[in-house]
């Protein structure tokens, strides 16, 4: 239990890091979208929350849903922040791509195999 830690959340209201916008600049961001940080991009000049997102994504790829949960930010705020960071080139977004891959037998077979082996 982390009573001390948890009481930090809610200090910063969602509209502050989102600069009052509920809609991200990129509509395509999904909760299952994978975010990949560009390690070469400079981090100075970022807002504190954009910095937190970058800092959290630098060690490895994570979905929007996970970043949202880890940083205890509502999905809307995470999407707004992530969209700005994708726009600025700090993040690369990979959407769940079933539309193109739904009929990709190879992918489905690999998924099936992996599930059976789990």
């Amino acid at each position: 239990m982390t009573p001390r830690g948890r009481r930090r959340t809610g200090m910063v209201r969602p509209y502050t890091p989102a600069e009052g916008h509920a809609a991200p600049t990129r509509r395509s961001l999904d909760l299952a979208t994978i975010l990949i940080a560009d390690r070469d991009m400079p981090l100075h000049g970022l807002s504190p929350h954009a910095y937190r997102v970058m800092e959290h994504c630098l060690p490895g790829a994570l979905s929007v849903a996970e970043v949202s949960a880890d940083l205890q930010l509502p999905g809307a705020v995470t999407k707004v922040l992530a969209a700005h960071l994708v726009d600025s080139g700090h993040l690369i977004a990979r959407n769940p791509a079933p539309a193109a891959q739904k009929h990709d037998r190879a992918l489905l077979e690999r998924i099936l195999n992996a599930l059976q082996q789990l």
Partner: peptide, 19 residues
Amino acid sequence: HSNSSDGHYLDAGVTPVKL
């Protein structure tokens, strides 16, 4: 399959599939 000691990070090349 995770390349992070943290255990929850994914490889950069990963494709997400949503159900």
